[in-house]
């Protein structure tokens, strides 16, 4: 269940807009941040808040890349695999991440910290190869840099 405060603030927000559905993505993001991912439960809650049906929420939730309908780690790493990053070494960056995290693409580390997902061009081609972690960008990647980024995040976790 969503904490009352969060629920109320979402309700407020929704009440103050002409068309609640406009907030569908915002509400999904908020619930996702709260639960870690958009669980079935969360879809139902979002539906109720937005006066939509769970199916209607799921119709859009499953459409988008950044809505996670399955559990993910605390940090979601989106490595860019589009053409410029690919040319500048996406494969080795991905392999490096897989080795360091001991997971395959699409998986979450055993400690629940990291999930590794490839993603389409993230708009940082001038800093290729690049990745996003929880929507923050890291560019000009190389193995050492990846090491320090992961270490830092582990320490913060």
């Amino acid at each position: 269940m969503l904490p009352k405060e969060l629920r109320e603030s979402l309700k407020d927000h929704i009440a103050n807009i002409d068309h609640p559905r406009e907030l569908a993505v915002d509400v999904m993001f908020t619930l996702q941040d709260h639960y870690g991912y958009l669980s079935d439960e969360a879809v139902k809650e979002a539906a109720e808040l937005l006066e939509m049906t769970p199916l209607e929420v799921d119709e859009i939730a499953t459409f988008y890349t950044f809505v996670y309908r399955e559990p993910v780690g605390k940090y979601v790493i989106h490595v860019c695999d589009s053409v410029i990053c690919w040319m500048d070494g996406y494969e080795s960056i991905k392999d490096c991440l897989c080795t360091k995290l001991a997971i395959n693409v699409g998986e979450t580390t055993a400690d629940g910290l990291f999930t590794l997902l490839p993603v389409c061009c993230i708009g940082y081609c001038d800093m290729s190869p690049a990745m996003l972690i929880n929507r923050k960008v890291y560019g000009h990647l190389n193995p050492e840099k990846i090491d320090s980024i992961l270490e830092k995040l582990k320490a913060e976790a």
């Binding site: 049906t53 199916l55 799921d58 119709e59 499953t62 459409f63």
Partner: peptide, 8 residues
């Protein structure tokens, strides 16, 4: 409103 298109 309980049947529709999901995924992409």
């Amino acid at each position: 409103r309980d049947l529709g298109a999901m995924q992409s």
